[in-house]
Amino acid sequence: MKSFLMRSYTFLIFFFLYAPILVLMLFSFNESKSRGHWGGFTLKWYVELFQDSQIVSALYYTVTIAIIASIVATIIGTLAAIGLTNMRGLPKVITLNLTYLPLLSPDIVMGISLMLLFIFVKLNLGFLTMLLAHITFSLPFVIFSVLPKLRQISEDTYNAALDLGATPFEAYKKVILPQISPGIVTGFLLAFTMSIDDFVVSFFTTGSGVSNLAISIYSMARRGINPKINALLTLMFICIMLLLVFVNYRMSKEDNKERRVDN
């Protein structure tokens, strides 16, 4: 009896979570444009999707910004994390709290405050401003992915490399970097997904015809239902799934490694 209740409840909640997404995906194959009835199977929305210049340019900006933003954030963030582990006392507390700040402040406040900054310094809202905003909200994710890895490694290996005649730079490159690289990759992937997924901050920091996929969905949804969005979302869902499987695979591999070391 108890397990029957548990199973039914689990089913109901998962139904609630998945039904809308499944319906959306199903209707991306619907021939008829009005979504009340099923007009037969078609792939035409997937074709029309890539002929829609607005969506194609949004896709281009989304991916370009995500790649550049996550690379820059990974570099600055990794350097900061290395520096942070060598800090003590008040400077460390200040830096850590500064890193929590973007995570804790509401998206909308981050969006409008960055918009104020860009307009204040007379930077035209567009590609560059959106990129700068994306780097800003990605940075904490990189730092919090790299920091735990840095805490795990001991200073002795680094000192040993120095004793054996390596320059500090060589020691970092050959000893520290390989050990923290899983954290760097995780940070990069987190930054990338955050950037791909962002709507609110992008919405306020972009302008002059530059928009990402989320902004396009928003404006299309407001204008009225469009089967092309369903096709777009189905593709995005598949991409996210693939990325998630990849990240999960990496994490479980790392977990196993750590467990082996612990034993």
Partner: peptide, 24 residues
């Protein structure tokens, strides 16, 4: 966790299509 990784606009949009007057 998977639905969480889908853009939240997409999930909200999905409800728009479900709740419409002649929706599903």
């Amino acid at each position: 966790v998977v639905p969480m990784w889908m853009n939240f606009l997409a999930r909200t949009y999905a409800w728009m299509t479900l709740l419409e007057n002649n929706g599903i």
